[in-house]
Design a protein around this nucleic acid. Structure first.
Length: 637
RNA sequence: GCCGCGAUAGCUCAGUCGGUAGAGCGACUGAUUCGUAAUCAGUAGGUCGGAGGUUCGAUUCCUCUUCGCGGCACCA
């Protein structure tokens, strides 16, 4: 027997007998063998100890390569599972994959794991790493695997093999040391010692077996794992930084808003937060006016019967708030603005000449979100949408999509979001509306993007039952994605609510309706904005844009004068006349993320000048008061 | 909604193996007027999330409950 192994550099080596990746690596250099994690065999990742029995192209994957991290993380999950079973006999293993920065493993155990257990488990993991147990791959027949797991009380594993793995599929078992084993696709490291030390257990939580809430509740333990200690350290540092920009923390620190238990999921906006909120609305109001929208306002509560007609009660009634009064009618708080907008459209007789008709509303909607889903400003039960509905003829669809996409991307850029991705979701299995309308609608969305040369990702079957949609996903300063804007074609609601217009041909037609939003939820967008900028909002958005800080109290009057001048020019200004040294004032105002500190001392008062210090800069700039006022005022839109 | 954890001064947090609580910052008062990230001193401030229970006595132990946090599920 002879086999040819081809290396990445094109070199070929012959072997007389099956050879493992580890042996090949050792043949090259002991250093390589030590750094090796897995071996790539004809594009597939294999265990280093798995014999290669055929001609193949191979490359040794070392731990500093990106593919290695996943193997290391997956191994960490297995080592953790073994540690848990050694420490807590009777705990069942289920499933434990690698994640973006680490791993988790779901366990079934009647007693809950506590935070202190994490330290114990982690210690045991380090012990298993030290034992340097060999990890070996075995192929088992299905029956044997089912029998084994059932005999050892691993009912979840047995179920998974019975239901989840086809009989003709190869079933691999990974043995860690003598006693412990798990069913797994692999690949794995040759021994537990290679895992290294760069891992850390982070949290314990609940999870449902196979992700279904009707199934058993399992306990999930999360951990981080990296190829090197430095990477782990860097990641922990990053997490700390992310925590510092948490909008809930900054909301308190910067006195923007608060939440309290009497109003779960609803926001108390403080003056500064509301200023920011209103600045966003004002900005969008202006942009939408320029884009041909007419702003309207529709009722917050409407008869339940109306929501039955629109179909919302049947589909989403579970999540709607309804009144309870001694009346023979029930009113519902609106979860969406669209039915109201159709009512405005329906007043009078509409002509094709009026189309496209674009309505906008900064409407506050209420949705009964599950208690466990609430999260600061990002997931609330009452929120304000920058909602809009466009009523148009089919042939106007594409142009409207183009206009909206342009408007949306322009606005995001202004807010500092340059990285925006677009998702196009098309017809699902269960849907209403004729296929030719779906054809037309999907084409309108796709052609709109193509005509602008904008890339997008297709999500077949992910559209709403009433029409296809585009979704706009923002990537923030630390790489997190947020879906905000959307435009959705609605082939359902107009006819359901009897919307009609008289066409050029004199006949009645049902308009096509587009739902669209750019911010989505203003509350949520505000939260995203706070986190994206880590609280240091750009000048034009900052609730307080400039604070005049006198150095000595002799300059207080001049400080007031300067502040008045700034306010008169439309700058959101304030004074800091506290009896503190300028050092303290600079510190406090910097921590409050005030974009511009206007320092005035005796010299400035005499010369009618001001000294500006911008947030995050030590550079100072002294200039005449009038000039400074004009300059700062010009920064506002 | 589910699993787990938590709730102490305006904020951040310490504490009490059951004997009615402390710090720093902030607030207030006074002194200080000091040119770019914390001047000094003093004072006030808490039914220890809510309701029940055990106990001579509960902020501490138990039960329920509300809200929050971390995930899971959900997100029209």
């Amino acid at each position: 027997m002879s086999l040819q192994i081809t290396f990445p550099d094109g070199n070929v080596k012959s072997f007389d007998a099956p050879v493992t990746g580890l042996e090949i690596a050792q043949g090259i250099s002991p250093g390589l063998a030590k750094k090796a994690v897995v071996v790539r065999v004809d594009g597939e990742l294999w265990d280093l100890t798995r014999p290669i029995t055929r001609d193949a192209q191979i490359s040794i994957v070392t731990r500093n390569q990106p593919e290695a991290a996943e193997v290391i993380r997956h191994d960490a999950a297995h080592v953790m599972a073994q540690a848990v079973q050694e420490l807590f006999p009777g705990t069942q293993i289920t499933f434990g994959p690698s994640t973006e920065y680490g791993f988790y493993y779901d366990f079934a155990r009647s007693e809950p794991f506590t935070e202190t257990d994490l330290a114990t488990i982690e210690k045991k993991m380090r012990e298993i790493v030290k034992r340097d147990l060999p990890i070996t791959r075995e192929v088992w027949p299905h029956d044997q695997a089912v029998q084994h797991f059932e005999a050892s009380g691993e009912r979840f594993k047995a179920e998974w093999i019975r239901d989840g793995i086809a009989a003709d599929e190869e079933l691999t078992i990974y043995r860690q040391g003598d006693g412990w084993l798990d069913m797994c696709l692999g690949p794995h490291l040759p021994s537990t010692g290679r895992l290294g030390t760069a891992f850390k257990l982070t949290k314990v939580s609940g999870a449902y077996w196979r992700g279904d809430k009707n199934n058993a509740q399992l306990q999930r333990i999360y951990g981080l794992a990296f190829a090197s200690d430095d990477e782990l350290k860097a990641h922990l540092h990053m997490l700390e930084e992310a925590e510092k920009r948490d909008h809930r923390r900054l909301g308190k620190q910067l006195d923007l808003f608060h939440l309290q238990e009497q109003a779960p999921g609803s926001v108390f906006w403080h003056p500064k937060g509301w200023t920011l909120f209103q600045t966003l609305i004002g900005f969008m109001r202006k942009k939408q006016f320029e884009a041909g929208y007419q702003e309207i306002n529709t009722p917050d509560m409407m008869d339940k019967a109306f929501w039955e007609t629109s179909g919302h009660w049947q589909n989403y009634g579970e999540n709607m708030f309804a009144t309870e009064r001694d009346e023979d009618r029930t009113l519902c708080l609106k979860p969406m603005n669209c039915p109201g907008h159709v009512q405005v459209f329906n007043q009078g007789t509409r002509s094709y000449r009026e189309l496209p008709l674009r309505f906008a509303e900064f409407g506050k909607v209420h949705r009964f979100e599950p208690s466990g889903a609430l999260h600061g400003l990002l997931r609330v039960r009452s929120f304000t949408q920058d909602d809009g509905h466009i009523f148009c003829a089919p042939e106007q669809l594409q142009a409207e999509c183009v206009a909206f996409t342009r408007l949306t991307l322009d606005q995001y850029r202004v807010f500092g979001f340059d990285n925006v991705r677009i998702k196009l979701s098309t017809r699902p299995e269960k849907r209403i509306g004729a296929d030719h309308l779906w054809d037309q609608s999907e084409a309108a969305l796709a052609d709109a993007l193509d005509s602008m040369g904008i890339e997008y990702t297709l999500f077949p079957g992910e559209g709403a039952f009433y029409g296809p949609k585009l979704e706009f996903v923002l990537r923030d300063a630390i790489g997190r994605d947020w879906q905000c804007g959307t435009i959705q074609v609605d082939l359902n609601l107009p006819s359901r609510l009897d919307a009609e217009y008289i066409g050029e041909d004199g006949n009645r037609h049902t308009p096509i309706m587009l739902h669209r939003a750019i911010f989505g939820s203003l509350e949520r967008f505000t939260g995203i904005l706070i986190e994206h900028h880590a609280g240091s909002l750009p000048f034009w958005l900052a609730p307080i844009q400039a604070v005049v800080a006198p150095i000595v109290s002799d300059a207080d009057d001049y400080a007031r004068e300067a502040c008045t001048a700034l306010k008169a020019a439309g700058v959101r200004a304030d004074t800091d006349l506290s009896n503190e040294k300028i050092n303290k004032k600079i510190r406090e105002l910097s921590m409050q993320k005030i974009p511009v500190i206007v320092v005035v001392g005796r010299k400035e008062a005499e010369e009618q000048t001001v000294t500006l210090r911008r947030l995050g800069e030590e550079r100072q700039e002294t200039l005449p008061l009038a000039e400074a006022v004009a300059m700062l005022a010009s920064l506002n839109p």
